[in-house]
């Protein structure tokens, strides 16, 4: 006859056999150690997407000349260096362009209230919810306005052909970190469909990313046009332009990228 089995038999609604209690003490300890190690290791292996800030604690107000097309941009004197001008991209809250808000203030000296988004040499403001744009009461200094308008005019820098990732500027500049790449693709597409300025991110030889605003051959926003190619790595040819301190690529052939 068989010897009675020493194997413990577990029934959920009865007391657990002592041998199994010891076994499960070990199992729980090992699983706990595994869980802690996994949590620590996986979190540690993440990568920073580079220095960027989205200052949401309090709004800030800046003044300058507002240009609406192709993308809303406030051109102002650089507070740190009065000899140069600075171009600040403007976007609405959420994944929506600031075009509708900015349109009535086209080419006017205004004050903008919003939340700064900063990465490297780029600046963007997300408009505040209450009266984000006000016309300067004195109409602005005409000399200053002329200087800023001249700076905002496109200057051709010649033909260019560059390869890089199509991104929405708002997320990339610091609203989402990371705000580019394949996981972010759908978000970039929603942003571009909402009119957020489109950007081509080009990896430089110095391993830094250089951003070029993308516009159509007629000079208008390319955001919606290129939205389906968000996060794709494309070669784009066209005319390189400078407007203020921002670089734009006026794409040669719409849709052919």
């Amino acid at each position: 006859m068989n010897e009675p089995s020493k194997k413990p038999f577990f029934v959920g609604y009865l007391d657990m056999p002592v041998q199994l209690k010891r076994f499960y003490l070990l199992v729980v300890l090992l699983l706990g150690a595994f869980v802690a190690l996994a949590g620590y290791t996986i979190a540690s292996q993440q990568k920073s997407t580079g220095p960027a800030l989205w200052l949401t604690d309090a709004t800030e107000t800046i003044s300058g000349l507002l240009v609406v097309d192709p993308y809303p941009v406030l051109h102002r004197i650089d507070p740190d260096n009065p000899e140069r001008t600075e171009s600040i991209l403007l976007v609405n809250q959420g994944k929506i362009s600031a075009h509708d808000f900015a349109r009535p203030f086209q080419n006017k000296m205004v004050s903008i209230t919003g939340y700064p988004i900063l990465r490297g040499g780029w600046s963007m403001y997300e408009l505040a919810s209450q009266q984000p744009i006000k016309v300067d009461e004195d109409g602005g200094n005409e000399t200053l306005k002329s200087r800023l308008a001249a700076s905002a005019k496109p200057t051709s820098l010649g033909a260019v052909s560059l390869s890089g990732e199509v991104a929405d500027s708002k997320c990339f500049l610091g609203v989402m970190k990371p705000g580019a790449g394949s996981v972010h693709k759908a978000c970039a597409e929603v942003c571009l469909l909402g009119g957020i300025p489109a950007m081509l991110l080009v990896q430089g030889e110095d391993d830094k990313k250089y951003g070029y605003m993308l516009i159509q051959s007629d000079g208008s926003s390319a955001s919606k046009l290129i939205s389906k190619r968000a996060a794709d790595y494309l070669k784009i040819s066209g005319e390189l332009q400078q407007r203020g301190d921002l670089l734009y690529i006026k794409m040669a052939e719409n849709g052919h990228f």
Partner: peptide
């Protein structure tokens, strides 16, 4: 652990 490690290793302008 994941959240704590992520916030402690990636802070300020390098935060995720």
């Amino acid at each position: 652990l994941f959240v704590l490690v992520s916030h402690s290793r990636f802070q300020g302008e390098h935060s995720i």
